[in-house]
Design a binder for these strands. Structure first.
Length: 471
RNA sequence: GGCGACGUAGCCAAGUGGUAAGGCAGAGGUCUGCAAAACCUCCAUCGUGGGUUCGAUUCCCACCGUCGCCUCCA
C-alpha cells in the first residue's frame, strides 16, 4: 500500500517514493535556540516524529536531519548583552531541547547540525549563487536576487506584487541596500567588534535561510525526499530555501514539502511573541503527564489542522491514553488459552489493516486511533466474558506493538505509573491494605485507599488482587 | 489589501455523493462489599443561503465567522 503525504508545493497528496530505493531522506527545521522551545514548537516536532516513525515502518532506511539554528539576531543580541559568546548563550537551550525530546519520547534525528558548524558550506553555497548570477553584494553584505529565479513564490503562492504591496508595515533595517524589497540576505556584513566570521565573503554572519540549504544538502544531498516544518516556515523560509538551493544546483531541491498547523491557545497561535506559551517542563510541573501531552499534540487532531490547547483537551488525551494503556496491560496480563478464534483473529487483522491505511493516507493518526479504540471496545467485551485464545493474543500483541511504535506513549505511561518506584511508606500502606482485604475489613481497606490516593497512588481491586499506579 | 486554511454533537475530532468513526464530559443500567476498570443503552439532520445531482455533510458559488502567512516566528 503506497504511503501518501500532502505536498505544500503542489497542494495535493503525493506518493512517498524515495529517490534512493528504500531510503527516505528527511529534513526537518529544528528550533532556534534563543530560548526554551514551547509546546507549540513541539507540536511540529511531534508531527515529524510520527512521520519519521511511520516512515521507518514503511521503508528500510530513514535518514533524519534536524538542524539547530544557533545563530541569529536574537541570539547575538542576547549573547552580547550577557557578555559571553554564542556557544555559552545557546548551550543551555540546546540541552533543554534534548531534554524535552526525551520527555516526550521523540526519537532523536541521526544528525543535529548546528548552523555555526557549517559556515564554510554556507560560504561555498553563496559563492555558487554568485557564479549563477542570482546573488549580489551591497555594502559588504550579499543578497539573493529574487527576480533571477523564475519559480520564486511557487511554494507559498506569494506573487511578486503581493509581496511588494503587502509588506505589512514592517521595514527591514537593511532594505535600502537591496535592489528589490523581495531580496533577502545571504550574508550580513558585521563590524569588527560584532559577533561574526571572517570568510572569503568578508566579515559577517549568515542570513537565516542559507543554513538550511547548506546543511540539508551537505548531509542529505542536493536533492532529497522530504522537508518539513511548521506552516509559518512556508514563507519566507522554505520559499527562500528552494530559491537558493535550486538556483545553485539546477536540480529539484525537495520531493515533498510537509507543514503542520499551529498549536493554539485561547483560539490564537501559541507563540513567544504573543506571550501565551508554555514549555514542556511548565506543563509537566503543573501535572500534565508526558504521555497525555504527546497524545494531545500528535494524535488528537490531524497534523494539518490547528489544535487548541486547553485543560479539557489535555484531560481528554489523558483519558484516551489510560484507556489504551489499561487495555494493553489487560491483554498482556491475560493468560491466553491454546486455540484459535478465527473470527477474532480476522477482526484484529482488519483493524490493523485499517490502521495502516489511515496512516498511509497523509498520516491520519486520529483516524487510525479511531479504529484502535473501536477494536478495544469489542475485545474488552469479549475479555469480560471469556478467555483469549493464543492466536488472537499473538495477533493483538503484535498490533498493539505496532500502534505504539508510532504513537510512542506506552513507555511514558510505564514511567508515569510505576516509574519512581514505591517508597517504603507506600509499600507498607499497600501491604496493610492487602491484609485488611484478606480479613474483609472493608472500612480499613477503603480508608487506606484514600490515604494512598492522597499520596498520588491509585489502587484498583481486580480478581488477581489489588493493582496500583500513579496519578 | 494579497495569499491560504478552517467551521461536524456540551468539548475534542475522523470521514463519506446514498441519511455520520473514535475520545472526553453527561444520564440510566450490568458487574463489584464499596470503588475503579470493563460492558450495555441514550445523546448530531455536519456554519448560512443558493446551485449541480435521483440523492450532498461530502462537488460548485456566494455570504457569515474563526485563524494563519505577507521577511522574528514550529
Amino acid at each position: 500500500m503506497p504511503m501518501r503525504l500532502h505536498d505544500t508545493l503542489t497542494r495535493r497528496l503525493r506518493m512517498v517514493a524515495p529517490l534512493e530505493e528504500g531510503h527516505v531522506r528527511l529534513y526537518t527545521c529544528g528550533p532556534t535556540v534563543y530560548a526554551r522551545a514551547h509546546v507549540g514548537n513541539f507540536r511540529t516536532f511531534l508531527f515529524e516524529d510520527i512521520l519519521r516513525r511511520w516512515l521507518e515502518r514503511r521503508f528500510a532506511r530513514v535518514t533524519h536531519v534536524m538542524n539547530l539554528t544557533d545563530v541569529d539576531d536574537k541570539i547575538i543580541r542576547q549573547a552580547a548583552a550577557a557578555g559571553h559568546g554564542l556557544h555559552a548563550e545557546t548551550a543551555p537551550f540546546i540541552d533543554a531541547f534534548y531534554e524535552d525530546l526525551r520527555t516526550l519520547n521523540i526519537r532523536p534525528a541521526q544528525h543535529f547540525p548546528r548552523a555555526t558548524e557549517y559556515i564554510e558550506e554556507m560560504v561555498a553555497l553563496i559563492e555558487r549563487l554568485e557564479e549563477a548570477g542570482v546573488a549580489y553584494r551591497s555594502a559588504g553584505s550579499v543578497y539573493y536576487r529574487v527576480a533571477g529565479f523564475p519559480h520564486y513564490g511557487r511554494l507559498s503562492g506569494a506573487r511578486a506584487e503581493g509581496l511588494v504591496a503587502g509588506a505589512g508595515g514592517r521595514v527591514d533595517a537593511d532594505e535600502y541596500d537591496k535592489e528589490d524589497v523581495r531580496d533577502f540576505a545571504l550574508w550580513k556584513a558585521v563590524g569588527a567588534d560584532e559577533i561574526g566570521w571572517d570568510t572569503r565573503l568578508g566579515r559577517g554572519r549568515p542570513g537565516w535561510h542559507i543554513e538550511c540549504s547548506a546543511m540539508s544538502m551537505a548531509l542529505l544531498g542536493e536533492s532529497f525526499d522530504l522537508h518539513c516544518g511548521g506552516v509559518d516556515n512556508i514563507f519566507p523560509h522554505h520559499e527562500n530555501e528552494i530559491a537558493q538551493s535550486e538556483a545553485a544546483t539546477g536540480r529539484q531541491f525537495v520531493q515533498i514539502w510537509c507543514h503542520s498547523a499551529h498549536l493554539r491557545i485561547g483560539g490564537e497561535k501559541m507563540a513567544k511573541s504573543m506571550d501565551n506559551f508554555a514549555t514542556v517542563p511548565d506543563l509537566v510541573a503543573s501535572g500534565a503527564r508526558p504521555s497525555a501531552l504527546r497524545y494531545m499534540l500528535a494524535a488528537a487532531a490531524h497534523y494539518r489542522k490547528p489544535v487548541n490547547y486547553s485543560d479539557e483537551s489535555l484531560h481528554a488525551a489523558t483519558e484516551s491514553v489510560d484507556r489504551l494503556a489499561d487495555f494493553d496491560a489487560r491483554v498482556r496480563g491475560y493468560p491466553p488459552r491454546a486455540g484459535e478464534n478465527e473470527a477474532r483473529v480476522e477482526r484484529i487483522a482488519e483493524a490493523r489493516s485499517e490502521f495502516g491505511a489511515a496512516m498511509d493516507d497523509d498520516l491520519n493518526l486520529p483516524g487510525a486511533m479511531g479504529t484502535v479504540f473501536s477494536l478495544i471496545r469489542v475485545l474488552n467485551r469479549e475479555l469480560d466474558d471469556g478467555e483469549l485464545d493464543s492466536a488472537s493474543y499473538s495477533a493483538l500483541v503484535g498490533f498493539l506493538d505496532e500502534v505504539d511504535d508510532v504513537l510512542g506513549v506506552m513507555e511514558l505511561v510505564a514511567n508515569e505509573r510505576t516509574g519512581n518506584s514505591l517508597s517504603e511508606e507506600d509499600r507498607a500502606l499497600l501491604d496493610l491494605r492487602r491484609v485488611a482485604r484478606e480479613r474483609r475489613e472493608w472500612s480499613e481497606s477503603d480508608h487506606l485507599r484514600e490515604v494512598l490516593a492522597d499520596r498520588g497512588i491509585v489502587v484498583e481491586d481486580t480478581g488477581e488482587g489489588q493493582r496500583w499506579r500513579r496519578l
